[in-house]
C-alpha cells in the first residue's frame, strides 16, 4: 500500500461536514493535530503488504438468521413519542426539509 499523506485542516473541515458537525476554529485546529497523530500511528497498518489476506468484518459471523414470521406487539407509540423533541398528529415533527423552488 502507498503511504497516506497527513490529514489537513481542510480535510478535517470537509469530514466534519460529512458527519454533520460544525467545528469552531479552535476545535478545527486541535482536531487536525490530534487526528493526525492517531492516523500517523495507524500508518503501520496502512503501509503493510496484506495482498491476498481476506477481510474480517465480524469475528463470529452468523448467516441467514431467521425467525418465525409471527405478529407480535411493537413498541408503544405514545411511549416512543414521549421521548421525541417535537410531535404533531402522532408523528415526529421536524423543521422544513425542502427549500423554496428556484
Amino acid at each position: 500500500m502507498t503511504p497516506v499523506a497527513r490529514i489537513t485542516r481542510d480535510e478535517v473541515a470537509h469530514v466534519a461536514g460529512l458527519a454533520r458537525l460544525r467545528l469552531t476554529d479552535e476545535e478545527l485546529e486541535r482536531f487536525t493535530e490530534q487526528l493526525g497523530t492517531v492516523l500517523d500511528h495507524a500508518a503501520d497498518v496502512a503501509s503493510l503488504d496484506l495482498a491476498g489476506v481476506p477481510r474480517t468484518a465480524h469475528a463470529m459471523a452468523v448467516t441467514n438468521v431467521l425467525r418465525p414470521d409471527e405478529p407480535r406487539p411493537s413498541l408503544d407509540r405514545e411511549e416512543v413519542l414521549r421521548s421525541a423533541p417535537a410531535v404533531e398528529s402522532n408523528r415526529f415533527r421536524v423543521p422544513r426539509i425542502l427549500g423554496d423552488a428556484p
Binding site: A16, A19, F31, A42, A46, V53, R55, T56
Partner: peptide
C-alpha cells in the same frame, strides 16, 4: 466520528478501513 468518517471516505477506504479488516484476520 470524524476519524471513522475519514477512514470510510472516498480515497481512504481501502488504505485504512480495508487494511484494518485484513489486520483483524
Amino acid at each position: 466520528i470524524m476519524l471513522g468518517t475519514y477512514a470510510l471516505s472516498a480515497g481512504y477506504l481501502d488504505a485504512y478501513y480495508g487494511q484494518a479488516l485484513r489486520v483483524r484476520t
